[in-house]
Write a protein that binds this DNA or RNA. Structure first.
Lengths: 241, 241
DNA sequence: CGGCAAGTTGAACCGCCTCAATGACGGTGG
DNA sequence: CCACCGTCATTGAGGCGGTTCAACTTGCCG
């Protein structure tokens, strides 16, 4: 069921009623399969569609005039994509797939309809956006006030949590489609330095990032390094399921 | 009229009808005057109120366990404060005044009521949040991919735009209550280095930051340094009034 | 087999940090 | 009224974290 992820997510704000769930099902969104490195939303090009990621990895980012890239957030299954570009006159950022992805497509019209007819879902929508914003804010803190090692540890911990919240990944490992260049652009570092940081984490027996897979060897020291507080992910007591 | 700023802001998404304007007026929010350095929202302490800033400067920020501070955004008149803390189980950030401020207070109940009864205002609300998020994203890019000089130039340009959009500040100057420490914590720099950057900008005859006032001497070179694109502020053609 | 994407490593450099000292201003109490 | 203190700004010196440039490896796919 393509909408399961979304319903689960919205329900973690306030549980959806049966009526609301059947309403959501009538939306009947288009389901798309896209390759890796496909651009779904293009910075500056007006947009009529938004998406929910069903499987795979994507990211949203901004390109600077000098060609450099800053990744704002990685998107994992269950995440909304391209809501902000729908609301603003011109999208302030781009969204691209990192791995092959399956996505649900929604129209701007459907969202306006939800706001007219389903105020409780609309409020859950606002919450979902607030939660995404909280993640971005934490990334900002990461760039502003943590060292390269701490940043990397923090992002890895966040990804572990987020993936586990949607039932992907185990206690101490997850599949990870990111390249070292992706990490560098997300963490405001050079790809050379990210490489050295990953080596350090490996040598200290804290974490291994290899072959599209992250394995955490020492969760305590990792959390310690990162100074990770899961509050911003807004789950009850910050607990995992 | 305490709500003028908010109505103007929401109207720039879709113009409010007369009925909507009179609805907003019935909200009759409490008006408060607060000193500088007063904490309105406290990271981790649950919150029942949100605010609109009517006059003065505030900021939202996060504190790290080591005592360091990262300012996420400066707030100027017309800006919402503390919406996200209302939606999340525990606020992910704090909000404090920087100068003495006048603020309007809203309750969580009122916002839910808007969502039930005024879907168009609710949608404008979502837009306002998207616009604030776009600003935060631009700050993230600033930290991740620009040098100290560029960051500072960018922030100054942004503040000039935002203040002019609410009728404060002239073509090339604005009152600015920020200290160099505030700037440092917003731009991910040390206060020592911000001081040197400001000196450089002054010596190059680009911009003067002095006596709680910013004067821009050379707008072209400033915009050039900053690589500033006002699109993310989401005004028609990025134009000033 | 050739070519490209991704990762790895070394060397040299520099942007920004930390530590430390000092100056300027305004408010407060003796 | 002035001495004192706290806040904010300024400047120098030295050091480190991260960048840039460049070379080389490894694995995959056509």
């Amino acid at each position: 069921m393509p909408l399961t992820a979304m319903i689960t997510k919205l329900s973690s704000f306030t549980p959806c009623s049966d009526a609301e769930i059947s309403y959501l099902k009538t939306l009947n969104p288009r389901l798309l399969d896209v390759d890796r490195h496909v651009t779904l939303v293009n910075q500056g090009v007006q947009q009529e569609k938004a998406f929910v990621l069903t499987s795979g990895w994507s990211c949203c980012y901004k390109l600077l005039e000098n060609g450099r890239r800053q990744i704002v957030d990685f998107l994992v299954p269950g995440d909304f994509m391209g809501i902000r570009p729908l609301l603003l006159l011109t999208p302030d950022h781009s969204v691209s797939t990192i791995s092959p992805c399956r996505i649900c497509e929604f129209s701007w019209k459907q969202i306006r309809e939800i706001y007219e007819e389903q105020p409780r879902i609309a409020l859950a929508f606002l919450w979902a956006m607030a939660r995404d914003e909280a993640i971005i804010v934490e990334h900002l803190v990461n760039l502003g006030r943590r060292t390269a090692l701490q940043r990397t540890a923090h992002l890895m911990t966040e990804l572990l949590y987020r993936l586990q919240l949607v039932g992907l990944g185990k206690d101490d490992t997850f599949e990870c489609a990111l390249t070292q260049d992706d990490l560098a652009d997300a963490l405001g570092l050079s790809n050379v330095h990210i490489n050295r940081v990953l080596r350090t984490l490996r040598e200290r027996n804290i974490l291994t990032f290899q072959d599209r897979r992250v394995v955490i060897h020492d969760r305590i020291r990792l959390a310690d390094l990162a100074g990770f507080d899961p509050g911003y992910l807004d789950q009850p007591q910050g607990e995992l399921p």
